[in-house]
Simulated assay, not measured.
Amino acid sequence: MRRAVGILRLVAAATGLVALISYFVYVQGFSTFSTANYFAYFTQQSNMANVVVMAVSGVFFLRGRRDPPWFAVLHALVTTYVIVSGIIYGIIVAQSAGHNYTIGVPWSSQVLHFYLSTFVLIDWVLAPGRTRIRWRVLPLVVPFPVVWGIATIVRGADVGWYPYFFLDPAQVMWPGEFAFYNGIAVGTIIGVMAALIGLSHLRPRRDVFTGAVPPRVLGGAAEGERARG
């Protein structure tokens, strides 16, 4: 099982890399294209990180190792960002159709926004040998999107281009609509991260790596540790 999961993660990493390159080639035909604009998208940044995380975690699985605690947190953060980018993009595409405006979604964009976001969610839910993540790391999911948002707004004011409508002052009213849309985005990020942390606490009856029954956790300490104490 772990070999199959490891191979699937490596395939996902390779697929993400190919999709990123293909989408870069595709958007070169747009008048607003620039290399800086391409890499300014939250989707591109989160998927580039996801390529690295999937590759490293795939190697861990092939070697029969769990994710180290620090890497498990990084894995959860990147998985959150990939899932949320897919959710937000799906909403934008759906709303554009309702306003008689069609957004082109080439196969590379579909892979980045929908297929990979679905894969990382299924992988997180079903892959064996999850490393349990502590709830206290939940606030760590906020700084990157906030810093990215501030940097995007500052850059947008300078170059006159924004990757998403809810950051563009010409498309959303300040401060009401701006706070509303961005509040939804941040709330979604926190909610998805919370769900992933909660799922990491659901362990199988038997550990797939050692065959042992994992200890139950009470108050943050394993029962066996409490008994020895």
Rank of each mutant, 00 (worst) to 15 (best):
R9H: 00
R226F: 00
V52H: 06
A97Q: 15
A97R: 14
Y41P: 05
M193G: 01
V73D: 03
P106T: 06
A151V: 06
G98V: 09
V52E: 04
Q28V: 02
M193Q: 05
S57V: 05
V154Y: 08
D67T: 08
G198E: 05
P145A: 01
G16N: 05
M173R: 15
A157K: 13
R63A: 09
E177K: 06
A4E: 12
T32R: 13
V53L: 04
V5R: 00
Y115A: 15
E225G: 02
L218E: 13
L138M: 03
I88M: 12
D158R: 11
L8C: 12
L74K: 05
R228L: 11
A76E: 06
N47S: 03
F119D: 02
W148S: 01
R206T: 08
M1C: 12
I133E: 02
P106A: 04
Y26P: 06
R130Q: 13
R2S: 11
F33V: 04
V192K: 02
Y89M: 07
L20C: 08
F42I: 04
V111D: 02
L140I: 03
S108T: 03
S31T: 10
N100H: 13
G86C: 01
W135D: 06
R155P: 12
Y26D: 15
G229E: 12
L121I: 00
P215F: 00
V192D: 02
I184C: 10
I91H: 11
A13I: 03
W70Q: 12
V5A: 04
T35I: 11
A222P: 09
V120W: 01
V78K: 03
Y115E: 12
A221L: 14
E223N: 09
P175F: 04
A55F: 10
